[in-house]
Amino acid sequence: MRWCLPAGLALALAGCGQVADISGAVAGGGAALVSSNPAVGYAVGISVRAAVSAGVDEVMKRRQQAEQDALASVIGGLEPGEVRPWQIRHAIPIGNQQGEVRLVRRLDNALAECREAAFSVAEDNTSAAPRQWFLTTACRQQAGWKRAAAEPATARWGALQ
């Protein structure tokens, strides 16, 4: 039981990329100790790591989709040359972002109403660093405006993303 506290602290301090590895190691080690069989510990550790990794990936994908949707909804309400602020506030306030978005041009055609926009991203308004600008395209869909990119906005690709 002495290893529970250091393992818990390591898990709490680790970034999202380490959570799956640490969880798998702790679960595998515990299973090996309880069963006295290293093969069982290895199997449990690999299984837990895979499950936690899939969960973290899903959460990160949903957070990224929310960011893209927030940006696309602002783009949908702009006229060419117009500038507006955009922001995303997550339920867990880590990675909240904001910036400005400027509509560059409309890309309307017979298939879809689309807009090309330049946007900036800043993690906080106190940053003195110069803003970097990025270019993106958003198109109107039945559910509203969505970012027009193959990844990760295209849900139909499933495991191929």
Score class of each variant (00 low, 15 high):
residue 108 D to P: 02
residue 108 D to F: 10
residue 109 N to F: 07
residue 109 N to D: 10
residue 110 A to G: 07
residue 111 L to W: 13
residue 111 L to M: 12
residue 111 L to F: 11
residue 111 L to Y: 14
residue 112 A to H: 14
residue 112 A to R: 03
residue 112 A to D: 12
residue 112 A to I: 07
residue 113 E to S: 06
residue 113 E to P: 12
residue 113 E to G: 04
residue 113 E to C: 10
residue 113 E to V: 04
residue 114 C to G: 08
residue 114 C to S: 05
residue 115 R to C: 03
residue 115 R to P: 00
residue 115 R to F: 06
residue 116 E to S: 02
residue 116 E to R: 15
residue 116 E to N: 09
residue 116 E to P: 03
residue 116 E to L: 06
residue 117 A to F: 09
residue 117 A to V: 07
residue 117 A to G: 01
residue 117 A to R: 00
residue 117 A to S: 08
residue 117 A to C: 11
residue 118 A to K: 02
residue 118 A to N: 12
residue 119 F to R: 00
residue 119 F to I: 04
residue 119 F to T: 00
residue 120 S to G: 09
residue 120 S to A: 01
residue 121 V to C: 14
residue 121 V to W: 08
residue 121 V to I: 13
residue 122 A to D: 08
residue 122 A to I: 05
residue 123 E to L: 10
residue 123 E to D: 13
residue 123 E to K: 11
residue 123 E to S: 13
residue 124 D to F: 11
residue 124 D to Q: 14
residue 124 D to H: 10
residue 124 D to A: 11
residue 125 N to Q: 15
residue 125 N to A: 15
residue 125 N to T: 10
residue 126 T to A: 12
residue 126 T to N: 14
residue 126 T to C: 11
residue 126 T to R: 13
residue 127 S to A: 10
residue 127 S to D: 15
residue 128 A to F: 14
residue 128 A to P: 07
residue 128 A to C: 09
residue 128 A to L: 14
residue 128 A to D: 13
residue 129 A to L: 09
residue 129 A to T: 03
residue 129 A to Y: 06
residue 130 P to T: 01
residue 130 P to R: 09
residue 130 P to K: 07
residue 130 P to E: 05
residue 130 P to D: 03
residue 131 R to F: 05
residue 131 R to G: 05
residue 132 Q to H: 07
residue 132 Q to G: 11
residue 132 Q to K: 06
residue 132 Q to W: 06
residue 133 W to F: 15
residue 133 W to T: 09
residue 133 W to K: 12
residue 134 F to S: 10
residue 135 L to M: 12
residue 135 L to D: 04
residue 135 L to Q: 13
residue 136 T to Y: 02
residue 136 T to G: 10
residue 136 T to L: 14
residue 136 T to S: 00
residue 136 T to Q: 05
residue 136 T to A: 08
residue 136 T to N: 03
residue 137 T to F: 08
residue 137 T to M: 08
residue 137 T to P: 02
residue 137 T to K: 01
residue 138 A to C: 09
residue 138 A to Y: 04
residue 138 A to H: 00
residue 139 C to E: 03
residue 139 C to A: 07
residue 140 R to P: 06
residue 140 R to Y: 09
residue 141 Q to N: 11
residue 141 Q to F: 09
residue 141 Q to C: 05
residue 141 Q to L: 15
residue 141 Q to R: 12
residue 142 Q to M: 12
residue 142 Q to H: 06
residue 142 Q to F: 07
residue 142 Q to V: 02
residue 143 A to Y: 05
residue 143 A to L: 02
residue 143 A to R: 07
residue 144 G to V: 01
residue 144 G to L: 03
residue 145 W to I: 03
residue 145 W to T: 00
residue 146 K to A: 01
residue 147 R to N: 13
residue 147 R to F: 11
residue 147 R to E: 08
residue 147 R to K: 08
residue 148 A to Y: 06
residue 148 A to F: 13
residue 148 A to L: 11
residue 148 A to N: 07
residue 149 A to Q: 13
residue 149 A to Y: 02
residue 149 A to F: 09
residue 149 A to R: 07
residue 149 A to K: 15
residue 150 A to N: 13
residue 150 A to G: 06
residue 150 A to M: 10
residue 150 A to S: 15
residue 150 A to E: 10
residue 151 E to V: 05
residue 151 E to Q: 12
residue 151 E to S: 08
residue 151 E to F: 12
residue 151 E to K: 11
residue 152 P to K: 02
residue 152 P to A: 02
residue 152 P to H: 02
residue 152 P to I: 01
residue 153 A to W: 04
residue 153 A to I: 01
residue 153 A to M: 04
residue 153 A to K: 00
residue 153 A to Y: 00
residue 154 T to E: 11
residue 154 T to Q: 09
residue 155 A to T: 03
residue 155 A to F: 15
